[in-house]
């Protein structure tokens, strides 16, 4: 079943890709092949393999359900929020929260998670900012 869905998604992506390819504006200087041909060949390849998945699907994997799915979605949400607000919040605070959340969900106790999160953030900050001199997100407090 999973493979059939993969195949359907592949077909849709390939179709959208071809549609987008036909919208590419050709410039007046162009080569024989042009900017559209190779992408269209690729989309055809994807469509062909997708058809194969629909016709001859493999046995599907076990998808997480219920609590586990929620767990994953929450983790992804935390990562997305981290990506969005990192520049505003600053590296150390954002990282302490994200790392603390992840280690908590991976089985650390709540108080330990807080400490591990802060230690992770400070550790990375010291190594990469102070020692290696990379620019990390600064935020309102400069760290």
């Amino acid at each position: 079943m999973s493979d059939r869905i993969l195949g359907l998604v592949g077909l849709v992506v390939a179709a959208l890709y071809v549609w987008q390819a036909t919208l590419i504006e050709e410039s007046f200087i162009t080569d024989v092949v042009g900017p559209k041909t190779f992408p269209i060949i690729l989309a055809i390849l994807m469509a062909a393999t997708s058809l194969y998945f629909i016709l001859r699907p493999d046995k599907g994997p076990e998808w997480p359900t219920g609590a586990r799915l929620f767990e994953l979605l929450m983790a992804i949400a935390v990562l997305v929020l981290y990506a969005l607000y990192l520049p505003q919040v600053g590296f150390v605070i954002a990282t302490a929260i994200a790392a603390g959340y992840l280690t908590w969900r991976l089985g650390s106790r709540p108080l330990a998670s807080l400490l591990i999160g802060i230690a992770t953030a400070l550790g990375i900050w010291v190594v990469f900012k102070l020692i290696l001199g990379l620019s990390l997100a600064e935020g309102p407090f400069g760290f």
Binding site: A83, A99, L102, T103, S108, I116, I124, L136, A137
Partner: peptide, 16 residues
């Protein structure tokens, strides 16, 4: 449980 979050955070550091 400690290591994996560190890996994730260092990935972000590099890309940022």
């Amino acid at each position: 449980r400690i290591l994996m979050p560190v890996v994730a955070m260092i990935s972000f550091v590099g890309v940022y």
